[in-house]
Nucleic acid binder design. Structure first.
Lengths: 114, 114
DNA sequence: CTCATCGGTAAGTGGTAGCTTACGGTTCGT
DNA sequence: ACGAACCGTAAGCTACCACTTACCGATGAG
């Protein structure tokens, strides 16, 4: 899917953040994750389903267990999304700073008046 | 605060994502945000409190209204946090790919044997 | 074939996040 | 000083999310 906002929403949960953190260091099975995390194995499984649905993790069956890993490309999508926010906010921030020291009345060029 | 994980958690809510999206384009008052968003003004106010608590937005009083804007530096913190995830996952991903096409039996160097 | 390991899913529960309405405080205009 | 505009907070409610236990299918080892 590579939907950035959906990924961001999925990353909102602290447990899922921990899962991504652990998986970013290398592939892990569900049980291994559950050993590290303070929740049960089914809980981990459900979180992994969420992460997989938005495309943040990949999984493959190896023997009797299923290895999960982070999809770097998906993470890059979220990164770019935040980049866009950051650049825009930076531009807006600097613009405001300029008009502040120059002209207290800010009615910039072509801004949309609600 | 500049706590990256707390910021990520705060960004988990779609409404807050919309708020950041709108504010990244320039400072806005609470009422202006409420006009654009599909929620009431108090709801926006509560979301702004969350975003402010984690340091993602700044506010200043101007006349009778309060202008909010994104703190670019805070957003940069989150960006770097995701960068770390991304780099780690990329390294792990490439390492796995290499041992795959080279040696089907993967018992790499000093990996943790459960 | 049998048993053990591993993991996904169903069912059910508690907590809380997000929303609304109502109210009070603050600032500006006249 | 009075009224209007703007905003934060309290109170309350609903819905959903994260978690647990229980169950079942699938894969490997003996």
């Amino acid at each position: 899917m590579t939907n950035a906002t959906a990924m961001l929403t999925a990353l909102g949960d602290p447990t899922r953040q921990s899962i991504i953190d652990a998986l970013s260091r290398g592939p892990l099975a569900v049980g291994q994750l559950a050993d590290v995390l303070p929740v049960s194995r089914p809980a981990v499984s459900q979180h992994l389903k969420v992460l997989k649905d938005v495309g943040l993790v990949l999984d493959r069956q190896v023997g009797t267990r299923r290895l999960y890993q982070v999809d770097p490309e998906a993470l890059a999508v979220v990164r770019r999304h935040l980049d866009a926010f950051w650049e825009r906010s930076l531009a807006a921030f600097e613009q405001r700073t300029r008009s502040e020291e120059d002209d207290p009345d800010d009615s910039g060029s072509g801004d949309d008046p609600a």
